[in-house]
Amino acid sequence: MMNQAGRAIAAVSAINEEQPLLAVSGLGKRYGPGCPACLDLQGQRCPQCGSLWACYDISFDLYPGEILGLVGESGSGKSTLLRCLYFEEEATTGIMTIPSYQGGPANLLAASAQQQRYIRNHMMGMVFQNPWLGLRMHVSGGGNIAEKLLAAGVYHVGRIRTRAAELWRQVEMPLPRLDEYPQNFSGGMQQRVQIAKALANKPPLLLLDEVTTGLDLSVQARVLDLVRQIQRELGVAMLLVSHDLAVIRMLADRTMVMHQGRLVEQGLTDQVLEDPEHPYTQLLVRSLL
């Protein structure tokens, strides 16, 4: 499945599938003043200065078309990591590169705000756990999709509406409700609108933060089907954050495990879930399965 998806994206945007789509190394996010002792930290909180490291020394590669799962308990830094990658939070340390963007070597975490906005609008889509963060509730559903297109410089109402309707169908939303406010939609529908918005500019990378949390089981299943369908048909690479191992097992090709702000284990999903190495992963797998 991975190879097939890889080929699909290569045709769409000429991204080299041998090369990672997104490469992150040494990413850290500190809340607090920081001190030299922070450089050699054992836990999450620095004993010298009291700073909290929500993420510490995170390194991974994400390849075109793959779904990379990220699991960990509440407060382990999953969402913070995602927000740093989406430039919602400023990372304290680390390097992030997208090799297909302007030759690649530049550290995007240190790029100008305009550049970061360009990447966010053209190369990334994000689906937030809480739809209120990802959607403008006082703007129509179609308008929410339009926002992404307008940010990418499409100033033609007809074309925007055609594309919005296309996405609306893709996420199986009823077309007559295109101009309705998202606050009138159910939780599952709001997640669909978020996904449609994230896909608006055909980005090669989607960041999904707990997309199914808080939805009932049948709706969860439909949203997960949609995610898998998008990955299969569009070959979009995804970083999928979840604390639900069943979701990870179903969707992710590879999985990373976060614990206290660090990546403690990463590998093929089956391998991580069947034969966990790190004590925390063992605990996680044992307690949830």
Binding site: V139, S140, G142, G143, A146, E147, L150, V157, I160, D179
Partner: peptide, 13 residues
């Protein structure tokens, strides 16, 4: 884009 969005919403509405 926020201003553009407001104008778009105006047209839709």
């Amino acid at each position: 884009s926020a201003m553009w969005l407001a104008l778009y919403e105006d047209i839709v509405r």
